[in-house]
Design a protein around this nucleic acid. Structure first.
Lengths: 212, 212, 212, 212
DNA sequence: GATGAATGAGCCTTCATTCAT
DNA sequence: GATGAATGAAGGCTCATTCAT
């Protein structure tokens, strides 16, 4: 990708504007449609109905536009699960089920957004800045998940897997399934994935009737 | 393979040309080092120590070089698990354990190769030709895995997960863990991954002592 | 045409961009100087004093730049004869003479422009798009010529050649002579060609004194 | 065209061989099929069923292969009209008619050969060596034609056009018509062209009944 | 004589980025 | 703030030519 390493920086929230968001939306749509490698500023700004010069002026560099788009996606995801982890009206198992359902909801796990996630993740090794954006939230997700599992383990009998192990296997499985949703959507519907994961939990918590 | 260049003429060039393989190796190394997007024919041919013109002449196009490299990786992987599935000296559980160990061996799951896999997979939605190469072997892997699990289920008592479900969850988990090996190698060592997966199987086949 | 760049934005860019015309002029000059096969975008844009990237951006492709240049030449030629065919102040013979003089004027039949014409025509079999550009105008020229000859034939006695035949022979002769101007300019001066053609007409219309 | 200016030279006739002629034939076919600009040594030698290295070894350079092909065509043409000019069994008018018929015979004026002629002629301004090959024979053709016309003029009454003028107009017309055969073969059949030219002669020699 | 693997110069094209307005 | 013309570096690819065998 033709990205100059210079000039990367975060814009302050007060700099957000309508055009700013239009460009981010357009970026995500373009990546989803054409792939990260074939996403050009020209296409993005055309889709956002903004001049190409403005896109660069606003984000200083392509790298920065990409980073901002990833950040947006990452925040959106975080907001979706944060609410669930904090939802005191639900018991731990109820929350896990909500998390699963959220992770395979059409808002989060639709092919376009997965395509974007996967694109960024595939570049993570070469552009550590991508990792920086997601890492922290990933860790929060994991630790909250572990806490939740711990609560369940304290109540429900289960002998072999530690909370960390359950959390890890779950998280890996979600990533693996997302990939499959991308390239084999027929066989990997949201329903299939959710059912599979619930079965997996059912196997761990054999007495819990809600993991159908 | 030391084949004198004289004899190459009479053999199928795709299989026996030294430069052919040098270019594929260099492609994989370059993708692993810089990412798919930043892999150029100039870099690859430099690393392979052949002229840029030759690389193009040999593979007709960059796309084709990439495809050939993916094919090589795919074949290498297939050879590694094919042998295990067919190994009649081992009982089913022994074979599953071998499969797990192979999937996280340093030959298969090293960061360079994973980087290449992930790069290609991330583009699958936009370049269906990538998928064509892996899909068939993926299906064979899955069906063989299912067969293996079926054999185990027939012997060992287990109530909740069907062979297909076990195979699917395993496969997704492997993909998810490979991604993690890529961007968090410290926390996701081969040993950690293998142990995690074995625990997962232990949870399914509680009586089987080999899933430590 | 001195148009301030500010105002260009509101007009159709193909017609009013200064650089657009500079590139077309440079293309024609380059073809005339080096031949179609050796005309590169690098040379053209250097001669036009714009960047190579811009030339491509402006015309989308080399093919298109070539096509546009041919169109320009074709239009220029058409404008020159259109006026004559429509000139009501002249009688038919007067117009034919003007047409001949125009076809071998230094503006139309100079070696540079002929070189370009011949280059394009030689490729017509392989690039039908070249033909598309000239064909229509060629037909109009021919039909107007025939009409003119018809008018003359109606007045002046002449027994053997139909208007179509006169038009065809004339047109072929012009093409043949243009080729000769290109590679033997010493023996095929404009004066020589004009005189030759007029003699040819004199032979047809023996009583018409203006075909010297 | 990528032709190094060095190493142009004529091969001596004793160097001719079967492969030599195969390459020349293949060159002409390739130019006729794809155009001069798109004719590559690789294609030519493939069509000639000879190795690419050999083509270069035999002709020293692409330029020289092209030149040799032009020479071959030029000689073939010369042989065809030489015989006619020297045919003492025919009277002058009979010879002119034969010349016309030869110039639009399917052996000489077929679209493939015309395509090659036109390709070379279009480059004549930039590669004087092309001209060198044809020029001499062109002059012989012209002078023989003039001589022939002189003989006719001595017998047949005709007032306006000198032998040179008739020869020139004829020759230009042939070139013009050849071009038309190339890009409008439907309207410019061999029969049409021959009839047109004969009409033209009929107009000059009104008493000669053989110019139908 | 004849081959074909290999080269490298040069072409067209793309695109992030700049800058005058 | 916003535009879009213009740049230039870099990429993929083609092809005449070379040379060891």
């Amino acid at each position: 990708m033709n990205v100059s390493p210079k000039k990367i920086g975060n814009l302050r929230p007060e700099e957000f504007s309508i055009n700013h968001q239009k460009l981010i939306d357009a970026t995500i749509e373009t990546i989803a449609k054409r792939g990260l490698a074939d996403t050009t500023i020209a296409q993005v700004s055309k889709k956002a109905m903004v001049s190409q010069g403005y896109a660069n002026f606003r984000f200083k560099s392509k790298e920065n536009l990409l980073l901002s788009s990833l950040k947006f996606l990452s925040d959106e995801y975080k907001n979706s699960w944060q609410k669930i982890f904090e939802d005191s009206r639900l018991d731990p198992v109820g929350r896990v089920i909500k998390i699963i359902e959220n992770d395979f909801s059409s808002k989060i796990a639709n092919r376009n957004k997965i395509a974007v996630w996967v694109s960024f993740y595939s570049e993570v090794k070469f552009r550590p800045s991508y990792l920086t954006i997601c890492q922290k939230q990933d860790e929060i997700y994991s630790s909250q998940m572990e806490k939740l599992i711990t609560e369940i383990n304290n109540i429900t009998n289960q002998n072999f897997l530690s909370p960390k192990e359950i959390s890890e296997t779950y998280h890996s499985m979600v990533d693996g399934l997302w990939q499959r949703i991308l390239f084999d959507p027929k066989n990997y519907s949201h329903e299939f994935c959710k059912a599979l994961i619930k079965k997996y939990f059912k196997n761990i918590y054999t007495d819990e009737k809600r993991f159908v």
